[in-house]
């Protein structure tokens, strides 16, 4: 099931701006390998779930897939063929705004080539350019 907040303070948000580089969550800390985002973008809850399913199926349930992002932000849209005005549209999807450097997923407990294959499948589900990175041991 796609991720979404259990409860929220405000039902609809203003759009805001998404700019700059990732402020945190930019290194691998749970698994051995990570998928790092290289562009600014919004990743929807459905895309996050599609990525998780793609990776889990490729790994045949070996190892562990960690999701490092969460869709906190509601995005509204108006229905088709509706005139402008009459208030803000309804929430249509939940998204995770991401910046370059952000680690989207991590995989642990599998060999490198298997993790690479899983990330290749997973990256096709993402609306942003991504690359595989490794955990830094020591310095």
């Amino acid at each position: 099931m796609p991720l979404m907040p259990k409860r929220y303070k405000y039902r609809k948000w203003q759009r805001g701006k998404n700019r700059g580089m990732a402020k945190g969550g930019n290194y691998v800390c749970y698994g051995e390998y990570g998928l790092q985002c290289l562009e600014l973008g919004h990743i929807t809850a459905r895309q996050i779930e599609a990525g998780r399913v793609a990776a889990t199926q490729f790994l045949r349930r070996e190892g562990k897939v960690y999701i490092r992002i969460f869709p906190h932000k509601p995005v509204t849209s108006k229905p088709l063929e509706v005139r402008m005005g009459k208030g803000k549209g309804e929430v249509s999807r939940w998204v995770a705004p991401v910046q370059p450097g952000r680690v989207l997923y991590e995989i642990g407990g599998v060999p490198e080539d298997l993790a690479k294959g899983a990330f290749q499948r997973l990256a096709h589900k993402m609306p942003v350019r991504c690359r595989m990175i490794y955990r830094r041991h020591g310095l």
């Binding site: 580089m21 990732a22 930019n26 290194y27 790092q36 290289l38 370059p100 450097g101 990175i133 830094r136 310095l139």
Partner: peptide, 11 residues
């Protein structure tokens, strides 16, 4: 002793 190293955002 090399205590720490600071990386850029992309690492």
């Amino acid at each position: 002793f090399i205590k720490d190293a600071q990386y850029d955002v992309l690492g």
